[in-house]
Write a protein that binds this DNA or RNA. Structure first.
Lengths: 194, 194
DNA sequence: CGCAACATGTAACCCGTTACATGATTAC
DNA sequence: GTAATCATGTAACGGGTTACATGTTGCG
């Protein structure tokens, strides 16, 4: 999934400058992966050449001029086309699992320390996501449907980090108690401590 | 989180050829992201130059010769060092969420179709993960601790896909029923339908 | 004075993907 | 015969990251 789609999507909501886009992407949990100068400015140039976006220069007193980009009609069509593409599975790159996988040469204490660190970081991130979910106005809500979808998007991220945290804490507890047996806690093997 | 670590890790369990590594990585859910010729063979050359791995050529009747790579003592030390690195947060690239985010220009039916497709694919992947969890011998179990950790790794993936599936199904149900309100189903906002 | 925020861009690099190249054997 | 598996590699490309380059305003 490329930056172009993310930019077209955002501009289909409201116009923005390259700087705006860069900031909003790198601050966001969903779009973070396209939050750097190079991509944004390069993509905007390409999109503009392809006629999918256009811009107007806006002069500002005491601040540098900015290029306000808007999506064109062609751009809207192209975005629609991309939105209808086959959905892709999430790409999970959990490098921590690789660390765990080959941790046999580490001591119990070293593994526990890693897991604690991991749980802490996941927990921090979880709280950030929950906080972002709370602040209004930063997401589009042109219809009840759209508002609901955006709520679900943040819930998706929260839920994802939540299972990750649960997983880490349960693994931690089991390793601390040296409970290596066949599924003491629940029974089903799933993360749903009802 | 590079391929080097993944390779060193695997070789710390047992020796393998480039071909073995490539196959085992691309078939795996955890290591899939390093499953291509180029990376594996290039990494092996670099690791060997750095003295972290060594190889012996093994001739085979009726089959091409293969280079069996083993980890060196230096390699083990280097691996240990990498295992103790700060754990990284999982990198979640859920391009589907971007599709949902800007779906305002799509009709209800189009969005429902996307969600159904997504749920189907996640469900398929989930079943693959669960199946892989069942087959023994493919993962190291040099100690009860290691066996447990590998079990937890597969459980992590299963749990991750499970929340994703639950999320898709609940979103689907809500959109079908046009329930855009504030959290009808549970109450907490979390994915735990107890 | 130095640093952060505003604002736009470029250059170099890393790493992963796709595709290409070779060549023997086995199975359909 | 033609495709798949075994086995090793290279080349070209794409996309994302880091760092560089430039210039003003405002804050501590």
């Amino acid at each position: 999934m490329d930056v172009h789609t993310a930019i077209l999507g955002w501009l289909s909501w409201k116009p923005a400058s390259g700087y705006d886009l860069k900031r909003v992407f790198s601050d966001s949990e969903i779009f973070y992966w396209s939050g750097n100068n190079n991509q944004v400015y390069k993509s905007l140039l390409e999109l503009q050449k392809a006629g999918l976006v256009s811009y107007q220069v806006q002069q500002q007193a005491n601040l540098p001029a900015k290029k306000i980009y808007s999506i064109t009609e062609t751009g809207r069509l192209e975005l629609r086309r991309r939105l209808l593409d086959e959905p892709e599975l999430p790409e999970l790159q959990k490098s921590f699992l690789i660390q765990m996988a080959w941790a046999e040469s580490l001591s119990d204490d070293e593994i526990l320390a890693l897991l604690e660190k991991y749980a802490g970081e996941v927990s921090d991130r979880l709280r950030i996501c929950q906080a972002q979910a709370a602040q209004p106005g930063s997401t589009p809500e042109r219809s009840a449907r759209e508002g609901y979808i955006w709520k679900r998007i943040t819930e998706n991220l929260v839920a994802t980090y939540q299972v990750e945290l649960d997983w880490a804490l349960e693994t931690l507890a089991a390793l601390r108690g040296k409970r290596y047996g066949t599924n003491w806690p629940g029974g089903g093997g799933d993360e749903q401590p009802c």
